[in-house]
């Protein structure tokens, strides 16, 4: 659940700063609603990798994985953790 909150906060801060967390439905299609465009998607993915320390493989770059707050949450839960580089 805490991930949902973090994802919501990021999406709002970055893409919809006049919207409150309550107003952003976790199932809203962020791509279709024009909140996140293709440039925004890249930025979102960079943030997910950085914030959750997960690896987003090229094969996972399906926009469906990032379509809504719920979809992002599911993706983060199942994505492989980044390996810590030795040395």
């Amino acid at each position: 659940m805490s991930n949902v909150r973090a994802i919501k906060d990021y999406v709002i801060a970055e893409f919809a700063p006049d919207v409150s967390a309550d107003e952003l439905d976790t199932d809203l299609d962020l791509l279709k609603a024009g909140i996140i465009d293709s440039l925004g998607l890249l930025k979102l993915i960079a943030w997910i990798e950085d914030h959750f320390q997960v690896s987003v493989e090229d094969t996972a770059l399906d926009p469906d994985n990032f379509r809504s707050v719920t979809a992002i949450e599911t993706f983060v839960e199942t994505a492989p953790r980044q390996r810590v580089e030795a040395g």
Partner: peptide, 25 residues
């Protein structure tokens, strides 16, 4: 009235490129 509502409204009628990037209400 927030940008979510206006974006959704624009998206319902026009192509994606026509959805404004920046709103000031």
């Amino acid at each position: 009235l927030n940008s979510l509502v206006l974006r959704q409204h624009t998206a319902d009628h026009l192509v994606q490129a026509a959805i404004p990037s920046v709103f000031r209400i």
